[in-house]
Design a protein around this nucleic acid. Structure first.
Lengths: 193, 193
DNA sequence: GTCTATACGATGATAGAC
DNA sequence: GTCTATCATCGTATAGAC
């Protein structure tokens, strides 16, 4: 099972993706060159093109796999709407905290997607919003939530939650659990009758 | 008072800024070239450098003047904290709706500022956050708001409000006033005892 | 103040040797 | 699969004529 010297298909691929993720998050897609990605991986530019047809595909694949993973892990939750909503808040904050780079890219680099790729990503994001909207609608049906327009409330909640990753630092004054607790309370109060 | 032919200092300057604003908002700072700004204005590249020492200063000046204008217009409000908070919500949504390009840049292009310029912009942004935090603290002092940490609540509210400009469209299902009304209610509920 | 011309390095992507 | 070399293009910024 000897492998040709210098052949590292199975290990270099993930490393290319990881390097691109890190660099795109740090400096922005447009500001990152294929050369800088290669340098981060420790190969020459040409080698990158064994793993991606071009830079655009690299961005698109990172966004898509992030959103697909997000959708896979975000279950509908169980119990009454209030419990499910509290669960969603905690899930969103924790998941986004654990993958700051991917989250940042998925929200900031939309305009660098080609029109076709943008549509795919928007569809996935929309499906994630639908998960939350369904919870809010269930709460309204239960008579426990008072929401004029569930679509607006959905977006308001997601914007609020996603904002956490722009300022939260592990080294700060508060633990992530403190933050979760306060956000759960604010979100529940915002929609409850 | 005849002016030298081809001399348009007073009109070209603002046009350069306006073009940069529009293009930075549309495509992102890193993706916009000085050539494309010049083309938008209708001059050659070299002419731009009569109005800005470099591209970085163009970005910085746009951000700074936006935030200074924002601070100037956002007054402390009058009356009880609940009224002042409702006023802040409406002000923020309307102001940000009227200047979508500037808002977008001020939130998205922070990482493209030099370290020195970043500090200045962060200071201005922080002063704006302080305006809201003061209102929340007043509400707590009145015994009308129940907030575990006013700094967190401040950031949560601002993230929620700023999110409006990412999805609101004049042509949509709802008027801006509908949106304002619902956000006022959600925000007040989120912090009220 | 604006133009043309240009310096000079960086860019994404490819070809062909190993 | 990776390397080196190369292409054609574009990037910011400047110099000097008008």
């Amino acid at each position: 099972m000897a492998r040709t010297a210098g052949s590292h298909s199975d290990v270099t691929g993930p490393r290319v993706r990881a390097a691109a993720l890190r660099l795109f998050a740090k400096s922005g897609y447009a500001a990152v060159s294929m050369r800088s990605i290669a340098a981060e991986v420790g190969v020459q530019v040409g080698a990158l093109y064994n793993y991606t047809p071009d830079k655009q595909s690299l961005l698109f694949d990172l966004m898509r796999s992030h959103l697909e993973d997000l959708l896979e892990r975000a279950g509908p939750g169980e119990g009454e709407a209030a419990e499910r909503l509290a669960g969603f808040v905690s899930f969103h904050i924790r998941y986004h905290h654990d993958r700051q780079d991917a989250v940042f890219i998925a929200y900031m680099e939309l305009r660098n997607l080609s029109e076709e790729n943008f549509q795919v990503i928007e569809g996935l994001r929309r499906r994630y919003e639908d998960l939350l909207e369904e919870i809010l609608a269930a709460g309204v049906a239960e008579g426990r939530f008072d929401i004029a327009d569930t679509r607006i409330a959905t977006r308001a909640v997601i914007a609020m939650l996603t904002g956490v990753s722009t300022w939260f630092r592990e080294s700060g004054r508060l633990t992530l659990e403190d933050v979760e607790t306060q956000y759960r309370k604010m979100v529940l109060n915002a929609v409850r009758v």
